[in-house]
C-alpha cells in the first residue's frame, strides 16, 4: 500500500508539473510583478523606480480614469442585466416545447461565435450614419434614428445594443439549466393549479438561480474588460471619450504612453473591483440562489 501511495505521489506531481510551471510563470509571477510595478515609475526602457503610492494617488485625481471607469460601469450596468434578461427570455421561449428547437438555438447562438473584430467591423457598417441599414430600418418604422456612434449620448447605448446580439452563449447555458429542472416539480405545480407565471417564479427561477448567478458573474467580468470592440469602433473613445473604457485607458497607458507602473495600478484596481463584485454577487447568491441538495 505504501508503495502505491508513493507511486501516486510521484505520478501526480509528474502529471501536474506543466501546471506548476504554467501557474508560476504565467500567473503567480505576473501578479506579483504587477503589484510591484504598481508602486513604481516604470517605462520598460528604464529600470523601475519605486515611488510609493504615487500612481494610486494620481489615479484618484485623474479625471480620465474616473471617466473611463464610469463609462465601463455604465456599460456593464446596462449590458449585463439586459443581456441576462434577453438570454433568459429566449431560453424560456425555446424551452416551452416548441418545434424546431435546434434550428432556433443555432440561429440565436450563431452571432456569439463571431470574432470580436469581425463583429466590430460589421456593426460599424450597420451603424453608419449615412448608409447604415439600422437607421434605414428605423426610419421605415417611423423612428427618427439617433446618430449612434457620433453622438456622445448614444455611443454607449449603441455598444449595449450590439452586445445584445451576442447573448447566444448565455442563452445556451440557460437552456441547459432549464432542461435540467426536474419534470416532477412542474407536475406538482400543475396539481396545485399554478399558472404559467407562478411556475416560472416559484419553480423555474429558483431552480436555475445558480445558472443565473454564473452567467451574471461571467457577464460582469467580461464587460469590465471590454476592449476589442470599442478599440475598433470608437477609437480613443470618440465621440468626446463617451466610449472610452477602462481597459482602453489601461492599454493606452501601458503601450502608448509606456507608463507601465500607472497601468499596473489600474490593473490592480480592476482586479480588486472584479473581486469585490464577485464577492457581492456570491453574498447575494447565498440569500437568493437555490442549490438543490446533492442527490
Amino acid at each position: 500500500m505504501r508503495g502505491l501511495r508513493r507511486r501516486e505521489l510521484w505520478a501526480g506531481l509528474a502529471f501536474v508539473s506543466p501546471w506548476v510551471v504554467g501557474l508560476g510563470v504565467f500567473l503567480i509571477y505576473p501578479i506579483v510583478a504587477s503589484l510591484y510595478y504598481s508602486f513604481c515609475d516604470y517605462s520598460v526602457l528604464d529600470r523601475a523606480r519605486p515611488i510609493g503610492l504615487a500612481n494610486y494617488t494620481d489615479l484618484a485625481k485623474d479625471s480620465l480614469f474616473w471617466k473611463s471607469l464610469f463609462n465601463t460601469l455604465f456599460y456593464a450596468a446596462l449590458a449585463v442585466p439586459l443581456g441576462l434578461g434577453l438570454a433568459l427570455a429566449l431560453a424560456l421561449l425555446l424551452n416551452s416545447g416548441v418545434r424546431g428547437l435546434t434550428v432556433y438555438r443555432t440561429i440565436f447562438f450563431l452571432p456569439a461565435l463571431m470574432p470580436m473584430v469581425a463583429l466590430a467591423v460589421l456593426w460599424l457598417w450597420i451603424f453608419n450614419g449615412e448608409y447604415g441599414v439600422l437607421n434605414v430600418a428605423l426610419a421605415r418604422l417611423g423612428i427618427q434614428a439617433p446618430p449612434w456612434l457620433t453622438d456622445p449620448a448614444w455611443s454607449k447605448p449603441a455598444l449595449v445594443l450590439l452586445s445584445m446580439w451576442g447573448v447566444g452563449q448565455a442563452m445556451v447555458i440557460f437552456l441547459a439549466g432549464l432542461q435540467d429542472v426536474p419534470e416532477h416539480l412542474y407536475e406538482a405545480a400543475d396539481l396545485d393549479g399554478a399558472s404559467w407565471w407562478d411556475k416560472i417564479r416559484h419553480v423555474t427561477l429558483p431552480m436555475i438561480s445558480p445558472v443565473i448567478l454564473f452567467n451574471g458573474i461571467m457577464g460582469i467580468i467580461g464587460s469590465l474588460q471590454f476592449f476589442a470592440i470599442p478599440y475598433i469602433m470608437t477609437p480613443n473613445g470618440q465621440p468626446a471619450r463617451s466610449a472610452y473604457f477602462y481597459a482602453m485607458y489601461l492599454y493606452d497607458n501601458a503601450f502608448l504612453y509606456l507608463r507601465m507602473g500607472y497601468a499596473s495600478a489600474m490593473a490592480w484596481i480592476l482586479f480588486i473591483l472584479i473581486f469585490c463584485l464577485t464577492l457581492v454577487s456570491l453574498r447575494l447568491a447565498a440569500r437568493y440562489v437555490h442549490y438543490e441538495a446533492a442527490p
Binding site: G12, L23, F26, V44, I221, F271
Partner: peptide, 29 residues
Amino acid sequence: WPGRNIFFGITLATMMIPFPVLMVPMFVL
C-alpha cells in the same frame, strides 16, 4: 497526493484574474 486539494483550490481561484492584470508583466517577461 498531499496538497492536491489546496493546489486545486488555488487553480480555481486564478480563474478570476482578468487578463489586463497580467498584460504588463507578461509583456515584460
